[in-house]
Design a protein around this nucleic acid. Structure first.
Lengths: 337, 337
DNA sequence: TTTAGTGGCGACAACTAATGTCGCTTACTG
DNA sequence: CAGTAAGCGACATTAGTTGTCGCCACTAAA
């Protein structure tokens, strides 16, 4: 292939998406950095001809004219998305709706709409839509995720990526809004809430900020105040989010007694690789597996109520005996009222 | 731009990915369908020159020579992925690991690796990797998803897409493996298990098949036996998967009494738009919200054990009173043993 | 208002690439 | 062994691309 065509494709890759823009001079430099030594005039011609075929534009700005992909430009993928990949995107999308904050999903919407379009083309002569053929079901209660401004989200993402400070206006839970300058250290998603973990100004103590509580956020070019040897994993394990993430040091052997339906289910989706199921009679099964000793396990066991009886380990059984007493106390007292 | 370059880009888009291939004649036809009337010889030249610049190949097959993108070809996106999008993909990936079957994720891996690469480039001069800056935490117990052969997954996907029958070898739970010819109707993901919903041979009754239980699957070109007026949603709502998906017809007003921590949490992630929280004293709160009357709600409420007391509606309270009695019976009886 | 600097754009001739055609060769088919 | 389909080299023609130059528009500092 001649240089020209390949260079044009590379030029398309170098162009930024809508809010950003690049001047002809910048592009010229970047291209020459990639081995395309070319006259300024040629690049001008390239861009102009590409603009006829692709959704790219230049702002008429007289000062520093810049070229960019239009905001509504749809993704062009090479090689094209496979139909099976499109179907996977569909599934992931319906699933994520319940678990991920909408602002994260909206970042990925170009990919989802590409998938929709592809599936739509395949079935253009039929009325049945894809959503009628795919369903996802899960055990979790749908909760309403708080809304985050897309702009605030991207400011915070970019600050984290470039390790720079941000100037913010933040609304704490019970107090008046305040101005903070934050050194971002990490992002934690708990259920559907996104938290920014970071330090304030020049201080060393690490704090959390819910992203939906930011009223304003602005990227400074000032670089981060480094907090020596901060580890997000250690921070979370320290219990800052009310429960540690799983930790292989806390293995224990769990033994439960349960009914046929749950035992069947556990046969498909195992608690652990070494799980074993013992059938006592047609309706009573015992399941043994080594699992992590976590809060998540307790929630999961609790969820089944009286359909699961914890047999071992002893300390967990005791917890459940205590909990059952607390529960019966709760309801019997109030029932008398 | 001249035709030539644009045509080459379109040619790249028309090429399929590795297992599939397209002959020069097919491409010629498809291109002419898109307005590129061109000599066969030119296309041959195009493909050959493109092969120098992109990972495309032709099999030396003498019978029906075909061109295709190499299997390990990495995605080329126009416009390129934004850093913030890459970060979102990272989050989604860590989250999906726990909820989606690995075979679905492996379909999306080109996108994840694109994101990784982009974030890697941004930070190439630093040791800190992205996974150290992003964490997701959720309330659900990690369970081990059953493994599905990638090939079986894609055969079933494609059959569903093209509405054709599949010939399979299937391993039912307790019986010997059997041969089935299935007319696929839909796919349901329950937690981490994927089920294919469909009918057998020429029969009308709808059945479920867990994807990880397929030993073999083969696409026939025979088209589907249409099952008149099948609706996946109705099928699921019929209780075939042990609990219906949420249904706005089953709204009710829920009132619970709970502690400070849970109330705080619900303030961030609401049960419903009209949720209200009443503070009774520093540790006792009442939360009211209209929610769907679903199994998911019960699991969710159960999960908190004695930390949530259900006050209204009365029938739900009665359910919880019964459940607490069943639970205390369970543990007090066995305790005596 | 002038002046220097920057960048866009039209024109043009030299150059390079792309195109269709032809004929030869190879491989598979019946 | 003929017939068909496809790849490939060669070649003249056509079309597109390139660097250069000069002109103009705009901006910012004098």
């Amino acid at each position: 292939m001649n240089d020209a065509c390949f260079r044009k494709i590379q030029t398309l890759r170098l162009l930024p998406k809508a809010p950003a823009r690049k001047s002809v001079s910048t592009l010229l430099e970047e291209l020459s950095g990639r081995g395309f030594v070319i006259d300024r005039r040629s690049l001008q011609r390239d861009l102009k001809s590409l603009a006829n075929l692709f959704p790219i534009e230049n702002d008429g700005n007289k000062d520093i004219p810049g070229w960019y992909w239009r905001r509504d430009a749809q993704k062009l993928e090479l090689p094209e998305m496979e139909p099976t990949v499109a179907l996977s995107f569909q599934m992931v999308k319906t699933h994520l709706k319940k678990f991920m904050p909408p602002s994260v999903l909206s970042e990925l919407s170009p990919y989802f709409s590409n998938a929709d379009k592809l599936l739509g083309n395949l079935k253009q002569n039929e009325l049945s839509s894809w959503s009628d053929k795919v369903a996802t079901i899960n055990r979790s209660q749908p909760l309403i995720a708080p809304k985050i401004e897309n702009e605030i989200l991207s400011v915070i993402y970019l600050a984290l990526l470039s390790e720079t400070q941000i100037k913010t206006h933040y609304q704490p839970k019970l107090e008046e809004p305040r101005d903070y300058t934050i050194n971002p250290l990490g992002i934690v998603i708990v259920d559907q809430v996104i938290y920014l973990v970071g330090t304030l100004w020049k201080y060393q103590d690490v704090r959390q900020f819910a992203l939906h509580r930011f009223i304003k956020a602005e990227n400074t070019q000032t670089s981060n105040i480094q907090t020596s040897s901060f580890s997000l994993k250690d921070y979370i394990d320290g219990g800052q989010f009310h429960f540690p993430i799983e930790d292989s040091n806390k293995k224990m052997v769990l033994k439960i007694r349960t009914n046929k339906w749950i035992a069947n289910h556990l046969e498909e989706v195992k608690l652990s690789e070494n799980q074993s199921i013992l059938k006592l009679d047609d309706e009573i099964y015992e399941v043994t597996a080594s699992v992590d000793n976590t809060q998540q396990l307790r929630w999961w066991l609790n969820g089944f109520g009286a359909d699961i009886e914890v047999l071992e380990p002893t300390f967990l059984r005791q917890e459940f005996i205590n909990a059952s007493q607390a529960l019966s106390k709760l309801y019997s007292i109030n029932q008398k009222e």
